[in-house]
């Protein structure tokens, strides 16, 4: 239906406007082949890369690490900037990050945040807020869990 309409519109438009294709040569210009060739290279490179990864990726689970980047004093406490890194070939979703401040093996303060997604071999930055100064005690940042996306 839609296709038919499209066609009749097209032919209508062609009748209204004077044809201007007589002046053109039938053979496409060399530039068109160059652009077409370059495009084919781009597409093939992407296909090749994905194919290589598809062949070399074993079914595996996310490997998560949380790295502390810096600790800063804020107006009403302290902020720990972290970067959560996923070292595996699969994406982790809903990653729960927990931060603990420990004194003599006893947890005195916890803080947490959930990261929506950490793609494969990628990182995601975030911050945890504490009321005590983490640099005066022992600070632990761990990934507590995740789901498959």
């Amino acid at each position: 239906m839609g296709q038919k309409r499209q066609r009749s519109m097209k032919s209508g438009a062609a009748q209204q406007t004077p044809k201007h294709d007589e002046s053109r040569s039938k053979k496409p210009h060399a530039l068109e082949w160059v652009v077409g060739g370059l495009s084919a290279l781009v597409v093939l490179a992407i296909v090749g890369f994905i194919l290589y990864h598809a062949l070399n990726t074993a079914a595996m689970k996310p490997e998560l690490r949380v790295l502390v980047e810096q600790v800063e004093a804020t107006d009403n406490g302290f902020r720990v900037d972290f970067r959560a890194v996923n070292g595996s070939d699969v994406t982790a979703a809903g990653v729960e990050i927990e931060g603990r401040i420990e004194r003599d093996a006893q947890t005195i303060e916890t803080s947490g945040v959930t990261i929506d997604y950490i793609p494969a071999h990628s990182g995601q930055r975030g911050g945890l807020l504490f009321s005590r100064d983490p640099s005066r005690y022992r600070l632990r940042l761990v990934a507590k869990g995740y789901t498959d996306p």
Binding site: K19, H20, R24, V35, A40, V43
Partner: peptide, 24 residues
Amino acid sequence: SDPSLPPETPWWSAFLRFTVTGYA
């Protein structure tokens, strides 16, 4: 109706010049 694609155009010619280029 499309002057850039006369009816006798072989499929691979249109494929490379328009489809692949368009996808890129």
